[in-house]
Design a protein around this nucleic acid. Sequence first.
DNA 1: CAATTGTTGATTGGATCCAATTATGCCATA
DNA 2: TATGGCATAATTGGATCCAATCAACAATTG
Lengths: 244, 244
Amino acid sequence: MSALQPIADLIATSGLRHRTATAFVEATLRSAILSGRLAGGTPLRQEDLAAAFGVSRMPVREALRQLEAQALLDFVPHKGAVVTEISAADAADTYAIRMALEPAALALSIPHLRDEDFTLAEDLIVDMDTVDEPGRMGELNRRFHMTLYGAAGHPKLIALTESQLASFDRYLRFHLAAKGRAHMSQDDHRAMVAAARERDVATAVDVLRGHLTTAARAIAAFFAARDDQSSGPHGESAIPPAKA
Amino acid sequence: MSALQPIADLIATSGLRHRTATAFVEATLRSAILSGRLAGGTPLRQEDLAAAFGVSRMPVREALRQLEAQALLDFVPHKGAVVTEISAADAADTYAIRMALEPAALALSIPHLRDEDFTLAEDLIVDMDTVDEPGRMGELNRRFHMTLYGAAGHPKLIALTESQLASFDRYLRFHLAAKGRAHMSQDDHRAMVAAARERDVATAVDVLRGHLTTAARAIAAFFAARDDQSSGPHGESAIPPAKA
DNA sequence: CAATTGTTGATTGGATCCAATTATGCCATA
DNA sequence: TATGGCATAATTGGATCCAATCAACAATTG
């Protein structure tokens, strides 16, 4: 089975078509990387991707360039575009960024949030309670957070925050695995919405910081367990499978 | 004179050549945009760029794609890749991001800074006092700040911070114009290094926050003046020229 | 048997060519 | 004269082709 079999599946299942082939390739590859279907270290060869997508190497190259600019790929000469590895240090890095950006976005946004934003956020909490699938969970979690940040009125800050949150998807399944998939800090989510409703910026930011810290600890614990086990027979066995 | 005459000049003057044509085109274009030689709204046509660089459209396209992913360009069908506009709102946005990222990076970095880092930072302050040219000033300012942040040990956070600082170059000449080019808050720079030497994180972060706020105010004032004047005969006249 | 070197194959970077879409400007007409 | 339609030209997205570079492997020799 080829390393990009997950890609072939994605292409087959996704009914989505984009205006340009480049956009389609880029969106599909990014989804595959962020969801963990393409593991870190996987080399992606242009010819194979072109064949899988049914296009020429040209749109593939442009898509790979954009993903490289997003730090999801490294171009290695004569090896291919290698999916960037994730690691405990990398997770800590991502969390440092989120810890810097998200409280700022939340504080700027809270004064401008409307009733419909709160109800949407609460609906998303309910959705997260019912849905169990990791891929969908990442999207719901992202939408929940972005709903609370979205009124900040700083589009670049929001876009940057969202892109970081999207890259967090690569770690979310580790988080869920570590927490036994038992509801990912939904109490924090509810407390954030409640504080935001009261326009209590300080409390909301405190809850958010604690929320992020909890997630960081869970992921660090998972990586510690995996790294221990990787001294054993098979290091990869600790990675939770990424189901479609 | 073509709109991309500045590019031709850049190519002629820069003795730099990169390993690949794509990297050369990308670096040159990014430099031209960030330094303000290519104004916001300028459409870049692939064919013209290819001719100017003496390459085919292919490396130009890949370079444009990467710059698009860095939010420096917008692809408009049948118009070309247009340089993203800058505005007062955009400047405020950039500052919100810097205000979130840089204090975090500084706080993480200070405990690990070494003597050589401090002396390098102090040398850069001296350089900034002597050099007057805007383009070089942006680079020196960026290196000064990154020297203080660089020991944070979070490569992604540092890379993100540096990219934001680089995009700040587009506004730096506004800042310098507003402050009468009289030393850009060099007192703040000195105070930051002094506090960092003392491992006084709180003071260093406070100084940095004030430093950023001062710069934000200067740029906001400049944009306010420009927008007033733009009701008059020529709105662009308030933009300080970007000398080579 | 190990180390080294030459050869071959794979892979990417770049150029040229083709197709599709749309902006633009001219001309006819009301 | 203003307006609407149509033809042309310009521009981008995509495909195919060529060249250069490097890695892997095998053969050869000390």
